[in-house]
Design a protein around this nucleic acid. Structure first.
Length: 594
RNA sequence: GGCCCAGUAGUUCAGUUGGUUAGAACGCCAGCCUGUCACGCUGGAGGUCGACGGUUCGAGCCCGUUCUGGGUCGCCA
């Protein structure tokens, strides 16, 4: 192999054009492909910008040609020569009008045949991709995702700097707070038996920064949550986190609409319309069955509780009587587009969300069929049809449950499933939505108490302060989420900034004063010294990038992601450690673990 | 913790009712080829059918267990 030995690259492969013809240029990169025509060899050289064709001719330069003959896929080359116009052009390639007539070639590294081809649109097993992540990342698609990620971060730094925000780092080794997600714990050598926690978010620190007078803060913050993974959830992820002083909801929203505008302009050259539509949580649930509705398509929910509350069909009447509801989606054209088999699949689909079943009614050309017709009178059936505004050819899908949460969960998911099956979703459409006025509390079956829906530092809406302790179910918070195409991109709130309100909040959550002091004493104490009204928001950077590049999995926008069981296939971590390390940390493992 | 899906050549897949020597494409190797660009042509190598156990005269195929990966419910203040 040869060394660089003074070789200087003058161009990236993807950057050369007709204007550069005649120039002596030098490029470096990996061999995408070699085409051997006998006395001619072409090599496609790839770097992060694209591909440039290198040309070798046995008759013109025998020595260089012989070298090119030994080259294989993924070899690392440096090539110098004169750029010339091609006799046969490739209009599919940005550099397709030109090629490099190589006069000097250096083989910087050989390469074994990779376990999979370095190509876009290859559907290689995830296990293999992740084990050889460094090869997977060579694919142009992945290079683009990582580049977009960089652009978003750069846009964030530029935008927030332009708007008077300071970027401030907060600690990675922090105190464990049992509310919320499970913490990743870090043992302390200096304090045997004690543990740090990796941050789930910089929440408390950024609030303290407001109290310290920094007024506007942002951070590209790594966050950690020891919970199960999903297609859009990793245990280690990145937030674009921000906080502002002397603001109310409208101020935070305005700054963030500016930010989203800037990002979409810089990354996709798309103009987002502002102001972005806002919708209270209650309306989002009622119309879409979700607090992060995808508003690119209709299929809205319809409440049939009033229509069916006295009907003869127990499956409908009883849940209403028990305080639940009966709701429906009307799928236009569904009667013809969903044959019986697909409807059965939808029935199974809603069961995964806890629904006991899915009642359906088809308004076919040749009459009505339904899964419950025999339990209903004609008038009752007609009331349902009129209730949802169905026409001939439509399919009505109904979920009934004594618990509204189940009805919303099932229909909210069903709505999206139907849209997917009917191909109603345009992938390049970006529909933003602010969801506002979230409930302050939600009831935790597991803990048998009300817990903070957002977090315990969220301020209640001014008109609902009196409900904090008297009517938790109806109490709303100054919390808002930014939703894009059915994905929660970010969320935030106006925070509690007075010790009294914070105490009331902890009391409402059922913390004793001692509990609150133990867990959040530093914050309560700090607020005694003058906290400005403040609020902020945090984006999931990974999700934002996912949507910008149209990726289906969050793994495709993270350079080195974890798999479903939270391990990393390339380095095979987590892994066991030496006994010596454990001894230093005063940690004993249960026998069966090792 | 629950449910669903997948695992066959380096890769992506096919493999009929359980039946002779498990196939294709791409990739890889060799030869030929002066304008290719998914080059072409000819030939070749390459398999623990994820693993273990069972049923059977006989298992890639059926059954059980398990491993790996994916999706999802719970969970994710």
């Amino acid at each position: 192999m040869e060394s660089l030995n003074g070789f200087k690259r003058t161009f990236y492969c993807g950057d050369v054009r007709m204007d550069d013809v005649g120039r002596e240029i030098a490029v470096c990169g990996w061999v995408q492909r070699r085409r051997d025509l006998g006395q001619l060899i072409f090599i496609d050289l790839r770097d992060r910008t694209g591909i440039l064709q290198l040309a070798f001719n046995d008759l013109t330069d025998r020595e260089v040609f012989k070298k090119a003959f030994t080259v294989r896929s993924e070899f690392v080359l440096a090539a110098k020569g004169t750029l010339r116009e091609r006799s046969a052009k490739n209009k599919d390639l940005p550099t397709g009008d030109v090629e490099l007539e190589v006069t000097e070639l250096r083989l910087l590294a050989e390469a074994e045949t990779p376990p999979f081809e370095i190509l876009d649109n290859t559907d290689v097993n995830d296990t293999l991709r992740l084990k050889y992540r460094y090869l997977d990342l060579r694919r142009p698609e992945m290079q683009r995702a990582i580049a977009v990620r960089h652009k978003v971060v750069k846009a964030a730094r530029d935008y927030f700097d332009d708007n008077g925000f300071y970027e401030i780092e907060t600690p990675m080794l922090t105190k464990s707070t049992p509310e919320g997600a499970r913490d990743y714990l870090v043992p302390s050598r200096v304090h045997p038996g004690k543990f740090y926690a990796l941050p789930q978010s910089p929440q408390q620190y950024k609030q303290l920064l407001m109290l310290s007078g920094f007024d506007r803060y942002f951070q590209i913050a790594r966050c950690f949550r020891d919970e199960d993974l999903r297609a859009d959830r990793q245990p280690e992820f990145t937030q674009i986190d921000l906080e502002m002083s002397f603001v109310d909801t409208d101020d935070v929203i305005a700054v963030n609409e500016g930010f989203l505008k800037a990002v979409f302009r810089k990354v996709l050259d798309i103009d987002i319309e502002t102001p972005i539509q806002r919708m209270p949580y209650a309306e989002a649930m009622a119309r879409y069955g979700s607090d992060k509705p995808d508003i690119r398509f209709g299929l809205e929910l319809c409440d049939l509780s009033g229509v069916v509350k006295d009907c003869g069909f127990k499956v409908f009447a009883e849940p209403v009587a028990a305080g639940g509801s009966v709701r429906a989606i009307n799928v236009p054209g569904g009667a013809t587009q969903f044959p019986r088999k697909q409807v059965d699949a939808l029935v199974e689909f809603v069961k995964t969300y806890g629904a006991k079943g899915l009642a359906w009614m088809k308004l076919g050309e040749d009459g009505m069929t339904s899964s419950f017709a025999k339990f209903m009178t004609d008038d009752e059936n007609n009331a349902i049809i009129n209730g949802v505004g169905a026409k001939t050819g439509d399919l009505i899908l109904i979920v009934a449950d004594a618990n509204d949460k189940t009805v919303f969960a099932a229909l909210g998911a069903l709505r999206c499933e139907c849209a997917r099956r009917l191909d109603l979703i345009k992938k390049d459409d970006f529909k933003f939505l602010w969801v506002t006025e979230f409930p302050m509390f939600e009831y935790s079956e597991e803990e048998e108490r009300y817990v903070a829906m957002h977090h315990p530092f969220t301020a209640p809406m001014d008109e609902d302060v009196s409900l904090l302790e008297s009517d938790k179910k109806r109490c709303r918070a100054k919390a808002y989420d930014i939703v894009l195409n059915g994905t929660e991109l970010g969320g935030g709130s106006i925070r509690i900034s007075t010790p009294n309100m914070q105490k009331t909040m902890f009391r409402a959550l059922g913390f004793s004063e001692a509990d609150a002091e133990e867990r959040f004493g530093h914050l309560i104490n700090a607020f005694k010294f003058g906290a400005p009204p403040h609020g902020g928001l945090a984006y999931g950077l990974d999700r934002l990038v996912m949507l910008l590049v149209g990726a289906d999995s969050i793994r495709d926008v993270i350079a080195f992601p974890k798999v479903q069981n939270a391990s990393e296939l390339m380095t095979a971590c987590p892994d066991v450690v030496d006994q010596k390390q454990l001894d230093e940390l005063d940690i004993t493992l249960k026998g069966e673990t090792r």
